[in-house]
Design a protein around this nucleic acid. Structure first.
Length: 764
DNA sequence: GTCGTAACGGTTGAC
DNA sequence: GTGTCAACCGTTACG
């Protein structure tokens, strides 16, 4: 118990320390950014800037703990009024910011923005729209989109005291924030019921101040920072999760242009918003899981938030308290619910790709927006040495939409209607990422144009670029071109360095005689697994339906997507054991003919029909073992009868040279043309359909007689996946690996593949 | 329209 | 080092 408590407190103290450090850093960055931004507009305001900047610095130096006191309510309201008048675009502007304030909005900025830029405007802080969090996002885009609550949003709501607690101090100039509307407590509405006792939660988190400066001159600079600490503990659990979040927000308005106009106050300049957010989590062991207690109502959260906001010091004290968990509960904590729901719903945690929302785990990196779900995400600007996240203030942007398959097409339609390229890109990306599901959804795939289908397919394929392994010139070069973003078309593959690429009737590229890349094969199987018909697969992947059918049949039979072994010669059927038997028969009966030996081998069960050596092979063995005899040759010739005719004709064509060479080969390798001819005859129907599935299956059946204890299908599926992943291994390497594995019996499917080779049928 | 399959031209690799 | 040959490949066309 005690050690656990100590650990918990240690962890909490660590969080406090970290909080301070991060807050300090955030504040410093904030001030630096604000200074630089404002510096670029020197003539705008010098009257009050000194005070505000001084305040900002003061607040920054104070680790953001008590910054609220520096804010002047009066100043705040003046600024708000001015903004409300100047912002005709307040609505769109506010909306564009409100949107991020939805599920994916960052913690403080949205709240602050909402308070500062009410869409209804000119009412002062009292009428400022309430906290951003929650379902506003869904309504932001015409109410059509009701995206699932973002984990980030909920996390933000949980972490951010502004949303839940509505810390009024978040904006010094916003005055006491009004009570958030019931529907606006997004975190509350969207979060599951808290499991942990609220009182514990209250004590476990604390919110610092929010600092802000503003200018009333033509150019307006606003800056704010915020930090929050939340603790989540599941019922009965002994571990608590600490989530710390800090946010710095800067807004710069270039409204000084309105002076030149002279027609009255009119904001024609730009509004820049920057923010940087840092979120970190830690887990600490607690003494005991607190008993779940009654959940505080949402209104309480807001009230308490305000109280806390008004009493920022209290929050600061909570952070600084050495025993925060023991402090009396004072707040309602819908943030617990948010955290809990996030923790219980993994899908809510995977929202870094949510468009327009910064990933919580990557506070300041430039890749944050890059990880968003599309190429049109807000760009990152380097300000004051820190990557800031710049959201374009597009009036109609709906940056907080959480796209999924359920709404991607609607979003796409909306984006098209409103000409939102970024949103379109995001929707396309969702479709591409869920390509198989899209294919199965007539309401999505059926509504897409041909170009769009092609585009999402291309993006889907492009995403596999990492699978390219340029180990083999023949295949890899082609594959690389296929996924080269610069080409972006299949046709770009045609001109491979080797010039082997060809384009089939469907527009797909292939190399004649060479198997398709593994990822294509895997995709075929994958799509088939999703119930997509072969004809659709063929069209989508631009692979002939014959090939699709072949691959699927093979996969169904063998469980492997790999192509068969290419090349090579038929292995010897006259194995040492068989040769030994032949020698034994000959010793027992020297006058025994080769065909008699052959029959004896079959009769005694040493060989079956598929593995018994040809008469020629037996004769060769006899020649090697017992020396050359004219009689034997004569007898062999007679036995071979008509089969030799073809050979003789060939000899006649090629002359004595071939005969002599064959003789040499016969002695040297124990193999000659005649043997192969005889083997061909003996193989009879087994070879008739080499290119057909029947042939493959026939080979399989024959081989199964020898490898009856194989269980290829179970491991075959794994190999199918493995095929895609193991791209470092070239096709040829795999093929070569197959036969060796056959012998060891370590890989069923591979064995089956090799069994398809006719030669493998006669392995033994 | 879908699917199976033989034929084709090609590649590969063991011999 | 080269040629042969039998395996494989994917495409195409046909039913």
């Amino acid at each position: 118990m005690l050690p656990r408590e100590a650990e918990a407190q240690d962890g909490h103290l660590d969080m406090q320390l970290m909080s301070k450090v991060v807050l300090s850093a955030a504040a410093l960055l904030l001030v630096t950014a604000a200074y630089r931004l404002y510096k670029s507009r020197p003539a705008q305001a010098q009257q009050k800037g000194g005070n505000t900047e001084a305040k900002a610095e003061k607040e920054a130096e104070g680790s953001g703990r008590l910054a609220v006191q520096s804010a002047s309510p009066g100043k705040l309201q003046r600024r708000l009024r001015r903004q409300s008048t100047s912002h005709k675009a307040g609505a769109p502007l506010g909306r564009s910011w409100e949107d991020p304030g939805g599920p994916c909005v960052l913690v403080l900025g949205a709240t602050s923005r909402d308070r500062k830029f009410p869409t209804t405007d000119r009412q002062g802080p009292e009428q400022v729209p309430p906290c951003c969090c929650g379902q506003e996002a869904g309504t932001a885009v015409g109410g059509k989109l009701t995206p699932p609550c973002s984990s980030l949003a909920e996390l933000a709501a949980a972490v951010d005291g502004s949303c839940v607690g509505g810390e009024p101090a978040a904006w010094p100039d916003s005055g006491p924030p009004e009570q958030p509307g019931p529907g606006e407590l997004g975190p509350t509405h969207s979060c599951a019921a808290p499991v942990e006792d609220s009182s514990d939660m209250k004590q476990s988190w604390a919110f610092s101040h929010v600092a802000g400066v503003s200018r009333e001159e033509a150019g307006t600079l606003q800056a704010a920072s915020d930090m929050g600490l939340a603790v989540q503990q599941l019922e009965g659990a002994t571990n608590a999760s600490y989530t710390f979040s800090s946010t710095a927000w800067v807004r710069m308005e270039e409204n000084f242009i309105q002076k030149a106009e002279g027609a009255g106050p009119q904001l024609k300049g730009k509004v820049y918003d920057y923010y940087v957010e840092s979120t970190s989590q830690a887990t600490a062991a607690l003494a005991e899981a607190p008993t779940p207690g009654p959940v505080l109502e949402p209104p309480d959260t807001g009230a308490s938030s305000r109280d806390q906001a008004g009493d920022t010091e209290g929050g600061a004290e909570a952070i600084a308290s050495p025993h925060p968990l023991q402090s009396p509960p004072t707040h309602g904590f819908s943030r617990k619910e948010s955290l809990l729901q996030i923790s219980e719903n993994p899908e809510l945690q995977v929202q870094p790709n949510s468009f327009g929302a910064p990933a919580p785990d990557h506070p300041d990196q430039g890749t944050l927006p890059a990880s968003a779900g599309c190429s049109g995400e807000p760009h990152v600007q380097l300000v004051a040495g820190t990557n800031f996240f710049h959201l374009p203030l597009s009036p109609a942007s709906a940056l907080d939409i959480c796209l999924d398959l359920g709404n991607c097409y609607e979003v796409l339609t909306l984006a098209k209607r409103q000409n939102l390229e970024a949103l379109k890109e995001t929707a396309y990306k969702v479709m591409s990422d869920n390509y198989l599901q899209v294919l199965r959804s007539p309401d999505i795939f059926g509504c897409l144009s041909g170009a769009e289908r092609e585009m999402i397919l291309q993006r889907r394929l492009r995403g596999r670029r990492c699978l390219v392994a340029p180990c083999s010139m023949g295949v890899s070069a082609l594959t690389f071109d296929l996924y080269n973003e610069s080409s972006k078309t299949h046709r770009g593959l045609v001109s491979t360095p080797l010039g082997q690429g060809r384009v089939n009737q469907l527009g797909g590229v292939f190399i004649n005689g060479r198997p398709l890349p593994n990822h294509i094969r895997h995709k075929i199987v994958e799509m088939a697994h999703h119930g997509i018909r072969p004809c659709v697969i063929s069209r989508q992947l631009r692979v002939s339906h014959g090939c699709v059918s072949k691959i699927l049949c093979r996969y169904q039979e063998t469980g492997s997507i790999r192509p068969g072994a290419i090349g090579g010669s038929k292995p010897r059927v006259a194995t040492p054991d068989v040769e030994k038997k032949i020698e034994e028969y000959k010793r027992e009966n020297p006058g025994m003919f080769s065909w008699e030996i052959r029959d004896r081998l079959l009769k005694d069960g040493h060989c079956d029909r598929s593995t018994v050596p040809s008469v020629s092979s037996i004769s060769r063995v006899l020649r090697i073992k017992f020396g050359r005899k004219e009689e034997d040759e004569e007898a062999d010739k007679k036995e071979d009868d008509g089969e030799k005719k073809a050979k003789h004709s060939i000899d006649g064509i090629l002359g004595d040279k071939v005969s002599s060479i064959s003789r040499v080969l016969r002695i040297k390798f124990g193999r000659k043309e005649e043997d192969e001819e005889a083997d061909k005859k003996e193989d009879d129907g087994e070879k008739k359909a080499k290119h057909s599935i029947d042939g493959i299956l026939g080979d399989k059946d024959s081989s199964e007689a020898q490898f009856s204890s194989r269980d290829s299908k179970s491991s075959g599926a794994e190999n199918a996946l493995e095929d895609v992943e193991a791209v470092a291994m070239t096709q040829e390497q795999r093929e070569r690996q197959g036969p060796s594995e056959d012998l060891t019996g370590s890989q069923g499917p591979q064995k089956k593949d090799t069994e398809h080779g006719v030669g493998r049928k006669f392995q033994y």
